[in-house]
């Protein structure tokens, strides 16, 4: 990784990569969860709309 990026992080490189890796994993997981959750809710609303169940404001529109 360091060769790829052209940097030398010294003898404690593993701690630095582990810290950055943890941030990427957790933030990446959160973003994926937010995206999937949004899709699930939109799909549920679409299924209800197909059955004719809509909000009053949506019916007006």
């Amino acid at each position: 990784m360091e060769l790829l990026l052209g940097i030398d992080l010294g003898p404690h490189a593993s701690f630095i990569w582990a810290a950055y890796g943890a941030v990427v994993a957790v933030i990446g997981g959160l973003i994926a969860w937010l995206y999937i959750d949004g899709r699930i809710q939109q799909r549920k609303l679409a299924v209800l709309a197909e059955r004719g169940v809509r909000r009053r404001s949506a019916r007006r529109a």
């Binding site: 937010l34 995206y35 949004g38 809710q41 549920k44 209800l48 809509r54 909000r55």
Partner: peptide, 19 residues
């Protein structure tokens, strides 16, 4: 994004309840 998801979730719940 999380707030938008939660608003959609509450709309789904309200519509299911109304149904």
């Amino acid at each position: 994004k999380a707030m938008r998801n939660e608003i959609l979730r509450r709309r789904v719940r309200a519509l299911q309840l109304a149904q």
